[in-house]
Nucleic acid binder design. Structure first.
Lengths: 189, 189
DNA sequence: AATATAATTTGACAAAGGTAAAATATGAAG
DNA sequence: CTTCATATTTTACCTTTGTCAAATTATATT
């Protein structure tokens, strides 16, 4: 999450009524996952959201027996399988811990119920959805306008922490490039 | 907009208070655009939303002097340049009428003000944003998992009205394929 | 119907990136 | 420090799609 949106969200949370915040904390739990653990598996409904406190998660699906990573989550990112969560239908995506990871877990139904009582939570939900749509729009734009080398350079510039901490196989699939092409790109920079 | 979401939105609107609906109508105006007219130009801030009553719009941007079409709008679709509208910053996209088109125009600021007073309008805004994110996710999924031929077939299956009513140059850029490749794909089906 | 203009198709070639297999590097476990 | 497993790089070749130019077809206007 870029600073601009993180600030918006922190500002919003800072403005929450005590009672809203207390209710939210009431339905949330800290959980710890070990490297390799699955937080969500395909075919299950994503009925939890995971706020990363520290560590790294990734979201991926299988296509032609290969893993395609769709998102990496670091501290202060919110991990869900969006369509599964929104429509409460089985997920095609997995969410997995890439390192030992501490998260704050909130149940979908509990959050929906709480939203009905606390308009400020609606604002938070809206802001997060809005940000996800902006992020996706940017991703589509890059896929349309940049070749493999440019996409790698963009990632290097905008998200160096990903390149430093994640395996190339996963970065390659995230960028929609083969592992071999990514390796060649890196050799020529 | 697929039936599933259109039903959700119509259901929501049907449940609106009389007063909410009246206020919304108060800040909306019917407008008519001729084929080729621009509803939004790049570098301007998208401070209006356009609900298509009939006709066809498209949204596009320039990249390396070529037009890349990002979306087509038919009856009951809502046309905005999303990031420009949300962040109220200059748009890189144009919105143009592909045919003579009747739209219902709502001003951004008026709508934001009205939302503060009418929670049901927040729900509407949320539903539309949510749907846009789902649509973008599906678009990214197709770009990652389908080749040019498959993407064309998917469009043919899911949005035949686009292929029937829009020029191939625009469809090609929409699918991220060259016009020539699209022409060859069509010749082999 | 004739003409101009725009849209689409076709051909020849080039570039980008993918695939498969082998070689090398890295890192964890004993 | 050695070994095994995993991650990454490299090589050779192949496939898909793009580019440019030209030809053809369709559409609109006089």
């Amino acid at each position: 999450m870029p600073k601009f949106y993180l600030d918006k969200i922190n500002g919003l949370i800072a403005s929450f009524d005590k009672e809203t915040l207390a209710s939210l904390e009431m339905i949330s739990r800290s959980r710890f996952f070990l490297k390799g653990d699955y937080l969500l598996r395909a075919d299950n409904i994503c009925n939890k959201s995971y706020w990363v406190e520290n560590g790294i998660l990734r979201k991926f699906y299988y296509h032609n027996s290969r893993e395609i990573t769709t998102e990496f989550y670091f501290a202060n990112d919110l991990a869900i399988s969006f369509d599964s969560y929104i429509l409460q239908k089985p997920s095609r995506e997995y969410i997995q811990a890439l390192t030992d990871t501490a998260v704050n877990v909130t149940d979908y139904t509990n959050f929906q119920n709480l939203k009905a009582k606390h308009p400020q939570l609606q604002d938070l939900d809206f802001l997060l959805t809005e940000y996800y749509a902006l992020w996706l729009e940017e991703k589509v734009f890059e896929l349309y306008t940049q070749n493999a080398t440019q996409r790698y350079k963009t990632l290097l510039r905008k998200s160096p922490h990903i390149i430093q901490q994640v395996q190339l196989t996963q970065i390659a699939s995230y960028l929609n490039i083969s592992l071999e092409t990514l390796s060649r790109i890196r050799a020529n920079i």
